[in-house]
Amino acid sequence: METRVLEIRKGILNKNDEIARHLRQRLHHAGLLTVNLVSSPGSGKTAFLQRTLRTLREQGTPTAALVGDLATDNDARRLAEAGVPVKQINTNGRCHLEAQMIEDHLAGWNLNQFEYLFIENVGNLVCPSSYDLGEDLRVVLLSVTEGEDKPLKYPNIFNSADIAVITKMDLAQPCEFNLEAACANIRAVRPGMQIFATSAKTGSGMEEWLSCLQQHKQADFVTI
C-alpha cells in the first residue's frame, strides 16, 4: 500500500457552475435577461416582483418568473395574479436554488417568446450567495424594517450582488430608516453598487428600477 498526495484543484460547486454556464448561454441565445432576486425572508421580494411583473405586462413586455420556496406555492399564486407565466420551484426544505432546478423548471416554456426571466430565490441571506443560477443580474433586496446594518452582517451576499434594491420605502419614516446610512453600508461591502429605493405599494422608485433593467437588456444584447 502506498500513500500519496493527489493535486485536484477542483471547485466543489463545479457541477452547479457548469450547468449555470450552459443555462446562461441558452437564455442569452433566446434573448432573455435573467434576474435572480435574493433577500432575507419577509423583505418583500414577492410584492416587489409582483409590481415589476405587472408593470412589464402593462407595457407589453413578455416576461416569466420562477419562484423558489421551501414549501407552499403561495408566492407563485400571488405572482400569477400579475398575469404572466409563473412556475413554483419547491425546494422541499432546501435553503437555496441550484442551477439544475432552474433548468428543470424551464421545460415546456418557449423561451424565445420572453424578454425577461425573474427568479425569486428562497428567502435566505447566506446560502444563495454560493450558487450561480445562470443569471445576468443578481439583485439583493433590503427592506427598511430590517435595519441599515444588514449589509455589514451579511457582506457575502451583498458583495456577490450586482444591484441593491431597498424595499418598503413607504414604511421608512415610522421605522426611522436612515437611507443614507443603508447606502453607505451597502457600498462599504460592494463599492459602487447601484441602489434603488422603492415601494411596491406606492410605486416609488419602480420607474428607475425598470429603466435600469431596460438599459442592462439593451447593453447585454447589443454586444452579442
Binding site: 500500500m1 502506498e2 500519496r4 498526495v5 493527489l6 493535486e7 485536484i8 466543489i12
Partner: peptide
C-alpha cells in the same frame, strides 16, 4: 471553494 489536494492510499 475548492479542493486543493487529497491524500490517498493506493495499492
Amino acid at each position: 471553494l475548492e479542493i486543493e489536494s487529497i491524500e490517498i492510499d493506493v495499492p
